[in-house]
């Protein structure tokens, strides 16, 4: 057997021989793009133009300071679309969050109380949409919303009501000030996404010790009191986690809107990520797009930090 010293040396050599390539890899594919993204935001950069020697920056891709950020507030068409996409993204997020919770939390409580065999079955079926391709989901819901031959309108007609002219393309259609196309997207998004939070809630509910419920029961608590004074406080860390995860994923909404409405009608469903994507890769305006992506990054970071601050909870049971 080798001496302890040489053994330790060979271990260290092994650790470094594994970690060195990983660190180099992360420098190229993670650290470099991060720094580059920050820098790009300060340049008027397009890969279509010939630039300087370092990353194609400079010369015909000039440094513009914070002009990209200032331009976000002017009246030009790209800036207007961008601001529209920011407000759309927030509207999406803060409509999706309460609706998602209103569906998943009660449903989780109902499932958790069901018979074990039934529980597994419902959980499995409800989770199915989350694993399916979002592109396929978008196409299926697009067909459901089809004004002439779609499933939804034929159902509405069957019960004797008049369906809207078009779910996804009528710029004049609003419900309580919210574009109809956005509502249609939110419904499709909720359908695809709710299983995820549902499963998390069920797991959290199962983690609540029975003796706490028994104690409340002995004290004469009814079902409602049990929910508000026992279940909900104990679910608080989970609830916070679910809220943040739902916010983060809604802020990055892309596929459904891209495929179902392409951001229309009249940019009513353009999200931030769609705006970044089309400016960067369709219009080749990457400096401007990078600046926009920094704004989205800032918003995402804010919610991530919130989560880390509050998730260090002291719940102990």
């Amino acid at each position: 057997m080798a001496s302890p010293g040489s053994l330790r040396r060979s271990q260290r050599r092994f650790a470094f021989s594994v970690m060195t390539p990983i660190m180099i890899y992360l420098m190229i594919f993670s650290l470099l793009p991060m720094i580059w993204a920050v820098i790009l935001g300060f340049f008027d950069y397009s890969p279509a133009r010939v630039g300087g020697t370092i990353f194609g920056l400079g010369e015909s891709n000039p440094f513009v300071g914070i002009r990209n950020y200032l331009d976000m507030f002017n009246d030009s068409q790209p800036a207007t679309v961008f601001r529209k996409s920011v407000s759309n993204t927030f509207l999406f997020t803060f409509l999706i969050l309460p609706l998602n919770l209103a569906i998943t939390l009660p449903l989780a409580i109902i499932i958790e109380r069901s018979h074990a065999r039934v529980k597994g079955f419902f959980r499995a079926v409800y989770f199915l949409p989350t694993v399916t391709s979002a592109v396929a989901v978008a196409l299926i819901w697009g067909a459901i919303y089809n004004p002439q031959a779609g499933l939804l309108n034929s159902m509405i007609r069957t019960i004797g009501m008049t369906p809207p002219k078009a779910w996804l393309s009528d710029p004049q259609a609003f419900v309580m000030g919210i574009p109809l196309a956005m509502i249609a997207l939110i419904v499709a998004h909720l359908w695809q996404d709710f299983g995820y939070n549902l499963v998390i809630f069920i797991a959290a509910l199962q983690g609540i010790p029975q003796n706490l419920r028994d104690a409340a029961m002995v004290d004469g608590a009814n079902e409602q009191q049990m929910f508000w004074y026992v279940t909900l406080p104990l679910l608080q860390p989970t609830l916070l986690f679910v809220c943040v995860m739902t916010i983060l994923s809604s802020l990055q909404m892309f596929i459904l809107a891209q495929v179902m409405t392409a951001g229309g009608p009249r940019e009513q469903t353009t999200t931030m990520l769609m705006s970044i994507y089309s400016n960067a890769f369709r219009y080749q305006n990457m400096g401007w797009a990078a600046a926009m992506s920094m704004v989205l990054f800032g918003i995402i970071m804010l919610f991530t930090i919130l989560q880390f601050r509050f998730l260090r909870s002291d719940w102990e049971y």
Binding site: F29, S30, L32, P33, M34, W36, A37, L40, P47, F55, G56, Q252, L273, I276, A280, F281, M286, A289, A290, S293, M294, L296, F297
Partner: peptide, 9 residues
């Protein structure tokens, strides 16, 4: 989405 533009380059 933050690194996708430089990653493309």
């Amino acid at each position: 989405q933050m690194i996708m533009i430089p990653l493309y380059l």
